[in-house]
Structure formats: C-alpha cells, structure tokens
C-alpha cells in the first residue's frame, strides 16, 4: 500500500520559492489503478518524483508498505513522459530492458526470459536489436513500458506517458496498460492531464487543483472492468464522469483566479 501523508513541496533556488504542492494526502491500495488528473503545471510530476524517491519533499511523508520513502525504493518502476530521453541511446532495445534486471542480479536465463516476455507483451518482439532512436515515438514509449514491467515492480508510476504520441498509438497504449495491469496485478499510479484518459483507464481518479496543489476529489470510476475504446467511451456513464471531472477542474481554476 502506498501512503502519501500531508505532502508538501516548495522549490527554492535562484532566490525565489515556487510552491508546487501545498498539502496532499491519499492512499493507493495494493493492486489499484489510480489516475491522477490535473492541469499542466499543477505539480503532478513533482508529486510523482516525491513518491519515486527522486525528490525530497519539503514536508509530509511518503510510505510504501509502511517503509518511509527516502530514496528510490526497490520494487518501484517509473515511466517518464519524455520517452525519447529516458532510454539509453547507446544500448539496443533488449539491453535497455535488461539493464535494471542486471542491477537486480537476476541470473542470465531469467533476464532473457523477462526481456522476451515483456517486449512481446508490448508488441515489440521484433525490436530487440534496434537502437531506441531507430523506433517511432510510440514504439520508444512501449520499450520504456516493457522495461518497467520486466522489472516486475510492485508499484508502477507513469508520468503522462502518452502525452506526446499520436492519438491512435495512444489508444493502443491505454489498452495495453489496462491489459497489463489486469494480468500482472501491479499497483499503478497513472498521471495525466487528459480527463478522458484518466476516466477511461482508472479504477479511481484523483482530481488535483492547479498550483498550489490540493486534492479536489477522490472519484471512484464505476465503469465495468472490461473496457474498450469504442464502447466504453460511448456509454452515458463515461460521459457523465468526464463531465463531472471537467467541471471540477474548471471550478477550481475559477476560484484560483478569484483568489488573485
């Protein structure tokens, strides 16, 4: 179980302070798929990096299964938004996926197995020997996802992983993520600024306000577990939910404007 308790983060530097996150508290139960949605610049990346142990919060705590997170915890994998930059350009695809497994000191046989399985799972069984920069953007992001699932994490953090891929690829990747989540039973925390994506993917959506950030609502998504791009998105319930999220975010924006 992932626990975020009173989390605050203020960036200081260059003589000015930016309050990115004001006060966030939530938990993600094991095996859940939680989507975090909020406008650009509201501190989603900041939050994710605090959870991943890549940033030290200014206040509050993050605990994973009761252990406070002070550095990158084992058993957690991160997929970054900048797919082009998160793959090692000097390693071929297979080596990129294998690298964290070497770090875990898995035996060679097991590593090969995991690399094969995970690349096949994201539909890149043929791309082992390619360099990342020889692939399209969507394929690169799939390599990053394959690397994350090969790591067999208990928690998978994803930071707007599909923000920069084209619409068709994006739909495919969304289904890929849901499929993987259902099969592997990992805990997924998925960050996005896209309301439709959050509602379509999540079992639950946390709506964030704009900066300085608080949680506006913790919304369970009561859509059926079996979802598909065509029908789920056409159901009235889907429309209701996304309208609701949309209104929440709009309202938050307006109150922030009124404050100023």
């Amino acid at each position: 179980m992932l626990n975020v308790e009173g989390l605050r983060k203020t960036y200081t530097g260059d003589g000015r302070a930016v309050e990115a996150i004001r006060d966030l508290t939530f938990t993600v139960p094991d095996g859940d798929l939680t989507c975090l949605v909020g406008p650009s610049g509201c501190g989603k990346t900041t939050l994710l990096k605090c959870i991943a142990g890549l940033l030290t919060p200014s206040g509050g705590t993050v605990t994973l299964d009761g252990t406070p997170v002070t550095g990158p915890p084992p058993g957690m994998a991160v997929v970054f938004q900048e797919y082009g930059r998160s793959l090692f350009p000097w390693m071929r695809v297979a080596a990129n996926v294998e690298l964290p497994l070497r770090q875990k000191r898995l035996p060679r046989e097991r590593r090969r197995e995991l690399v094969h399985e995970s690349l096949a799972a994201v539909g890149l069984a043929d791309a082992h020997a390619a360099y990342p920069w020889q692939l399209s953007g969507g394929m690169q992001q799939r390599v990053a996802i394959a690397r994350a699932i090969a790591y067999e994490p208990r928690v998978l953090l994803m930071d707007e992983p599909f923000a920069a891929v084209d619409a068709q690829t994006r739909a495919d990747l969304e289904d890929l993520i849901r499929g993987l989540w259902q099969r592997l039973g990992v805990t997924v925390l998925f960050v996005t600024h896209d309301i439709d994506e959050a509602v379509y993917l999540g079992r639950r959506v946390l709506i964030l306000s704009s900066s300085p950030t608080v949680i506006l609502e913790d919304l369970p998504i009561d859509l059926p577990a079996e979802r598909d791009q065509l029908h789920t998105r056409a159901t009235p319930r889907f429309t209701e939910l996304r309208t609701h999220v949309y209104q929440q975010i709009q309202a938050a924006k307006n109150t922030v404007h009124a404050d100023r």
Binding site: R85, S86, W90, K104
Partner: peptide, 29 residues
C-alpha cells in the same frame, strides 16, 4: 548528462560502477 536518464538510472537502482560504465561514461562519450 541528460536529467531524465539520470533519474531513470536512479529509479532503477543503477549506482556505483554500473552507473559509471552504463550511464556516465557512455553519455559523456
């Protein structure tokens, strides 16, 4: 060295000599 790569390496626990050989040196290559 690219910040995203550094963070990727950190989050996958790439430290010490492995970090040197697989991240720092190739990136500065």
């Amino acid at each position: 060295v690219d910040g995203v790569l550094t963070e990727t390496a950190r989050s996958y626990g790439l430290t010490g000599p492995a970090r040197l050989w697989r991240l720092t040196l190739p990136a500065a290559g």
